[in-house]
Design a protein around this nucleic acid. Structure first.
Lengths: 222, 222
DNA sequence: TCGTTCTGTGAATACTCCGTGAGAAACCGT
DNA sequence: ACGGTTTCTCACGGAGTATTCACAGAACGA
């Protein structure tokens, strides 16, 4: 696969190495973190993490806490590594938005199979998303509306992309800033508005898909 | 478990009945469609379908086409029923956004287990609270009464949300202020009344669900 | 019944938030 | 370095909302 980056979080170096070796063999890129805090830092530093593999038991900040924090701002798929598969933990995890569980010890084959399945399911390596006549091809960085290509800047593209990944969901400005802009970006609130304006105008009639929710933010709804 | 509606699409009446019987036993509501076109109609007629079970082989419009069409506008989970599990089909399906495959013949137990798993995973039974014809979807920031959407301001939305989370509980003005407004808000007591008034009027007949408790506060009771 | 207390209501006011355009700043390829 | 493009900032006007207030009328208790 091309350019899929996986964040591997585990306090045991041996375990990290094991997982990373297999990831490398499969052609994925990876980033390591040895505790929860580092994981959060790494995740928000880089904006291109496509999948997180997370150990539950860790010093400083355990896997649940990391998961919760990440979920505040991102829908990135998360695989949890647990020492044992306890039913209770699984329920907690589902609430927090964990996508998959693997209990140690596991065979790397299983891990890789799950990774593939999740990426396929969440469409990280999908070619194009199509919604109500709007086709957005992340890989080609191309957008067409009803067949005719639309010229978007990078920010506009990312904004539209974020909207389309979250259709029907009310998105606060804060959330949009944290996802489309850098995590630590503290700019003017009007910035988003300006980009939304340009997007809307470039989208023609379909610009109405981007709805304003007064006092709240925006929502994309085809 | 409450008020989950499943759309069952299959051209064989026998198969539909089999699936629906089990759905009913599990307490799910269901809608049937016997071909692709009907499926699309049913799906967009009602806006409350939480899950689609879709046969691949059908006259007029096959399962793939239905899936593609639905995916243009909705992220609803889709389970595909296939005659055989062919690798190629699975790949196509994943691209189209199919959430799960089950190949015929299958045991109803398996089907039910998958349904539960998917609903849990996609969290369709979270977030949206439904009471007496009023559906409030916090994620989409959307309220519908008997199917028709109602336009609420943010404050009204939060107030209704608070009421619905505390149905049957007598709520003092102080409590409402502390929960819906900032806890350091020291405004006029009439403020709440005004908002309740607007809420009631926007809710039509269902406005009566918000009952006044004289000398005390309000209570929401569908 | 009557007075008191509390609530419903409509209008007026104060306020917050959004859309917009112009321009500054950063970025990029040449 | 230069010109064009993209991104960001800012201030303003208008739209939409929250809050206040005064008053009428309902509920309650004596």
């Amino acid at each position: 696969m091309e350019d899929i980056t996986v964040l591997v979080v585990d306090d045991e170096a041996r375990m990290r190495k094991l997982v990373c070796d297999f990831l490398q063999k499969k052609g994925y890129r990876f980033v390591e973190a040895e505790d929860g805090e580092q994981a959060i830092d790494r995740f928000f530093e880089r904006k291109d993490i496509d999948l997180v593999i997370l150990d539950v038991m860790m010093p400083k900040m355990d896997g649940w806490a990391v998961c919760k924090e990440i979920r505040q701002y991102s829908n990135v798929p998360i695989i949890m590594l647990t020492a044992r598969s306890e039913e209770r933990d699984e329920l907690l995890g589902f609430k927090l938005g964990v996508d998959e569980y693997i209990s140690k010890p596991f065979s790397p084959k299983i891990l890789m199979a799950r990774i593939d399945a999740i990426l396929r399911r969440t469409g990280q390596d999908e070619e194009a998303v199509s919604l109500g006549g709007i086709v957005i091809d992340k890989k080609a960085h191309l957008v067409t509306i009803d067949g005719t290509p639309v010229d978007l800047s990078v920010k506009e593209f990312e904004l539209l992309s974020y909207f389309m990944d979250n259709r029907g969901v009310a998105l606060s400005r804060e959330k949009i800033l944290n996802n489309v802009w850098n995590y630590d970006y503290y700019g003017d609130a009007r910035t988003i508005d300006t980009h939304v304006k340009k997007l809307r105008s470039k989208m023609g009639t379909k610009g109405e898909y981007i709805k304003t929710i007064w006092g709240m933010g925006y929502k994309f709804e085809p």
